[in-house]
Amino acid sequence: MADFLWMAPRKNELPIPEGFPKGKRLLDTKGVAAVLGVSIREIDRMIERGQLPVPKKLGTQRRWLEKDIIAFIDKL
């Protein structure tokens, strides 16, 4: 199920180490939007409506635990 969430590393991004536990990755807004097939603005709307889990803040950046997005998809 979680294999479809793998994304090719972007520029200046390290690949995921072999054996890294599934569900422990952090996804950025673009990654979540790509997985769900929606725009970044729709991600913002879904957060405002309480449909998506609130992201963790890392400075000014928002990140979601992969397992939280998987749980969201499983509830659909």
Rank of each mutant, 00 (worst) to 15 (best):
M1L: 05
A2L: 10
F4A: 02
F4C: 00
W6V: 13
W6Y: 13
M7T: 05
P9M: 04
P9H: 01
R10N: 08
R10L: 13
K11Y: 09
K11I: 06
N12G: 00
E13R: 11
E13G: 00
P15G: 04
P17S: 10
P17L: 11
P17F: 04
E18F: 03
E18W: 00
G19S: 12
P21F: 03
K22C: 01
K22R: 12
K22S: 11
G23A: 02
K24N: 10
K24G: 00
R25M: 12
R25Q: 11
L26G: 01
L26I: 08
T29E: 11
T29C: 07
K30G: 11
G31R: 09
V35N: 01
L36V: 03
V38Y: 01
V38K: 10
S39Q: 04
S39Y: 05
S39H: 02
I40S: 14
R41S: 13
E42R: 13
E42Y: 03
I43K: 09
D44G: 10
M46Q: 14
I47L: 07
I47P: 14
E48K: 10
Q51W: 02
Q51D: 12
Q51E: 15
L52E: 03
L52T: 06
P53Q: 06
V54T: 14
V54D: 08
V54F: 04
P55R: 11
P55Q: 09
K56G: 00
K57I: 04
K57S: 07
G59W: 01
T60D: 11
T60R: 13
Q61K: 14
Q61T: 07
Q61Y: 12
R62F: 05
R62D: 02
L65Y: 14
E66T: 13
I69V: 15
I69E: 03
A71G: 14
A71E: 15
F72P: 09
I73A: 11
D74V: 11
D74A: 15
K75Q: 15
L76M: 15
L76W: 11
